[in-house]
Design a protein around this nucleic acid. Structure first.
Lengths: 335, 335
DNA sequence: CAGCGTATCCAAAGCGTTTTGCACTGCAAT
DNA sequence: ATTGCAGTGCAAAACGCTTTGGATACGCTG
């Protein structure tokens, strides 16, 4: 049998209303009774039943957080930060990992709603946002994905992937590269993958690079996919000076690709230049140190968490809020 | 205004009890009424309120999962697996990251209890288990930490770190190394850190290696700490042939240490042999490929999740359950 | 001294479920 | 015709809180 508010009330010689009031600080209680209540709580080891509370208040103080793959350092760092800032205001997070899979992603969003989370932060979701909005109106913060025009309770926190990718193209052209490979993400379902690809290719075109100078392969952002794609590239690849460079849509994928190159004893940047995307912590500890584009996960996470807290604690409507962050090229040694 | 079970009852022309019975499948309901109820649910888009349900049933279907640092691939992989197998039986997980910090770890366990989780899976916790048991009796599964004798509802899933470390010592001695460095974890508060250290040093002693042939440094399992510790080692280090090897208590720490060596243009294993611990996914993609000890996170996670489900779904008491897994040396190129 | 406002507390309703106990039906057995 | 018993459904209580709407006491004003 658990200890309830009634036990506390009896033990302290007050009503349950009074106990509740000292707990929630919503009404004044004389410091005399207040002491008695605290004493009773301590003596009996009372823990308020959150479910009763949630039922009554219709709030859970839980934020659902979605990631495509918690194993990717880019995402786990985001989760950590969100957990931290949300935790400071008394919110907990339920983690949903959808394993880079659109179907389990939908299931996960359903689960969140079943769990009656107060709000949802989705990092790089693939789902159609309008579909999501159809089934709920909890506050939503979408991270790492370009904003949509909508009057619903949704905010977007993102960096401009198109320009990030464009700056890669500018840089590579400036360096004198003339042949290009794109190891892209799943552009049909991840809009950032699409932005990174088109930002790159369109910039090439703008510089007058012929279309057939850029070969495109499609993967799914994982290490393994980077490895596999690069192997494919290398099947009919002849290093001719240092004329070729690969722009790879995520650092973790770039790492995989680099392993494929090393397996064939190809040197970077000598035999091929490499540029990644995301600037995860470890990218500066790869060999060669990876040139990449900063995708500001820290700032995004902090912003996202704060927006969510604004929505939940300050009853602010998220509609129209979007935070655009800079996405700068970070030049290191891989090209 | 939300749709409740009453709305469904009215819309289907039955009582709320009947609706509940079709939902929970606990009592027979004629297929006639059953159809009507399902129809009403679909038409009104009904989502049962979990808080009311939890309040009544005193179950939350939530498992609290603790990790020291979600950013460490070793842990994030564990979380992913746990989430997966628990999810298949209808359980969700609340994630608690205590940032390698004993204090926030305690706070996190408190939060879990406040959140009325059904059970707790703690990966490599530092807290004193007895203290934890004092404040709760929810089912507990402790991962990656040696078992305790107790009659409480706790299971342990672990690998034998002492022998893992011992096999490293055997191997290094067999290879002819005569000088050793230990970059250990926080042995006072993480028992695996202690086991890895003592397994190593005691095996050295057993082989008659003099005590002053092994220099010990203490860190906290992180990349940065590995980097810092190795820098310290290198302050007065002269490579003399390949006589020296470092046993480093975690792969991610070993990676940090390797970076410190590379910074000084020292080659491995030529100037120093390196052995890590954990065998995280990326350890075979470091240069040189890291020799390490397998810490079977996959198996541990699966076992832990299943034990928890046994406790929760099959009312099995966890007391006395402990799963010991093998911890084998994986020889690669770093020594 | 009547009247009023304020400070402090409590009883009880209600949140949306599950579950208990009872009611009703129809049929088989007596 | 009565009884007993499955089979099926419902009304209402209960879970442990928060919150509403008084009630009581007290001090102050006129």
């Amino acid at each position: 049998m658990n200890i309830t508010i009634k036990d506390i009330a009896r033990h302290a010689g007050v009503s349950t209303a009074t106990v509740s009031n000292v707990l929630t600080q919503k009404k004044y209680v004389s410091s005399n009774l207040e002491q008695q209540v605290y004493k009773a709580i301590k003596e009996l080891g009372y823990r308020p039943n959150v479910y009763a509370r949630n039922l009554k208040t219709n709030r859970s103080h839980i934020i659902g957080v979605h990631v495509p793959d918690i194993t990717n350092p880019f995402f786990s760092e985001g989760v950590k930060i969100i957990q931290n800032v949300a935790g400071n205001e008394g919110y907990q997070i339920i983690l949903y990992d959808s394993d880079n899979n659109l179907q389990s992603e939908s299931k996960n969003f359903e689960s969140m709603l079943d769990a009656h989370v107060d709000g949802i932060i989705a990092i790089a979701p693939r789902i159609n946002i309008d579909d999501l909005l159809k089934i709920t109106d909890v506050p939503l913060v979408i991270m790492d994905r370009p904003p949509l025009k909508t009057d619903r309770n949704v905010a977007f926190v993102y960096a401009d992937n198109y320009h990030g990718a464009a700056s890669v193209a500018d840089y590579l052209i400036g360096k004198g590269y003339t042949r290009f490979y794109c190891l892209a993400g799943p552009i049909k379902i991840v809009s950032n993958a699409e932005a990174r690809l088109s930002g790159f290719t369109e910039t090439l075109k703008r510089h007058g690079i012929p279309e057939d100078a850029c070969e495109i392969h499609y993967g799914d952002f994982t290490f393994d996919s980077g490895f596999a794609l690069m192997k494919e590239v290398l099947k009919n690849y002849k290093p001719e000076g240092s004329a070729a460079a690969a722009f790879i849509s995520s650092d973790i994928m770039a790492w995989g690709a680099m392993e494929a190159l090393k397996e064939q004893r190809l040197k970077m940047p000598r035999d091929m230049g490499i540029v990644g995307y995301d600037n995860i912590y470890f990218s500066s500890f790869l060999y060669p140190k990876l040139t990449t584009v900063e995708n500001p996960i820290r700032e995004m996470s902090i912003n996202a968490a704060n927006l969510m807290l604004d929505a939940l604690e300050r009853r602010q409507n998220l509609s129209g809020f979007s935070v655009a962050l800079r996405s700068a090229l970070i030049v290191r040694k891989s090209c």
